[in-house]
């Protein structure tokens, strides 16, 4: 896919992205990142602790504004958007999976999964119920549909988080150490799930991980070191 010459802009593009923290003493954490991501890519972001992986993902996820440089989504610059426009764009094009799943414990599994659809304005009960059922079936949690979210195991909760991230078919899913909190067997199945969705739905995945085995199973591996891209390599297809 990267070799395809295309006149249309990439799904996601970072141009000289910089991020500093601190008011008086500014510490630059990201030193001019240039990257672009196409549709359907399955990418691992690796690197030592403190190298700026999460910071990078937060800029890509429009959760935070870069100090300088641009994040372009489908060719459109985002730095001039208002807080509200960013929120809307985020809700429409992005899905998030975090290490600590962050389900809403007051809601049932179904209600959690439906949240992105509600946020996008869907009010049709039947359509919503059907979508939730499908999404939960994909992650194998149909029978837990009406259980409260905090009654599930960690692995089950992470699967619900995946169903939630996917339900509104966002173009990009950002996952920050999605398996970091799971045992290796559960981590494996969660990872497989993401791979399957990537294959079936063509969703772009950007996964921050410390797990080398997991990085090996991604199509593209970007290594961040001290706030710069240290390497960006593609795994040969079918390898």
């Amino acid at each position: 896919m990267p070799e395809v010459e295309d006149t249309s802009p990439p799904l996601l593009e970072l141009r000289d992205l910089r991020k500093s923290y601190g008011d008086k003493i500014k510490t630059e954490v990201l030193h001019g990142i240039n990257l672009s991501f196409g549709s359907g890519e399955f990418t691992a972001i690796i690197g030592p602790s403190g190298s700026g992986k999460s910071t990078l993902l937060n800029q890509i996820g429009l959760l935070d504004r870069p100090t300088s440089g641009s994040v372009l989504v489908q060719g459109k610059k985002t730095e001039d958007l208002s807080e509200e426009e960013l929120t809307t764009l985020r809700g429409r094009t992005l899905g998030f999976i975090f290490q600590f799943h962050h389900l809403i414990s007051a809601l049932t599994v179904t209600e959690n999964v439906l949240m992105p659809l509600w946020l996008s304005g869907l009010r049709d009960r039947e359509v919503a119920e059907k979508a939730a059922k499908e999404a939960l079936a994909h992650v194998g949690l149909e029978e837990k549909a009406h259980v409260r979210a905090d009654e599930l195991s960690g692995g089950q909760q992470q699967r619900v988080a995946i169903a939630r991230a996917l339900i509104h078919h966002p173009a990009i899913i950002l996952a920050d150490e999605p398996t970091g909190n799971l045992d290796s067997k559960t981590a494996d199945s969660v990872f497989s799930l993401m791979r399957r969705f990537n294959a079936e739905l063509g969703t772009t995945f950007l996964i921050v991980t410390h797990d080398p085995r997991m990085a090996e199973r991604c199509d593209r591996v970007i290594r961040i070191e001290d706030g710069v891209v240290a390497s960006d390599s593609w795994r040969p297809k079918g390898g």
Partner: peptide, 14 residues
Amino acid sequence: TREIGILRAMGIKR
């Protein structure tokens, strides 16, 4: 706080 964070990430308005 965390739940508010994830809701905001999912696109809930301030």
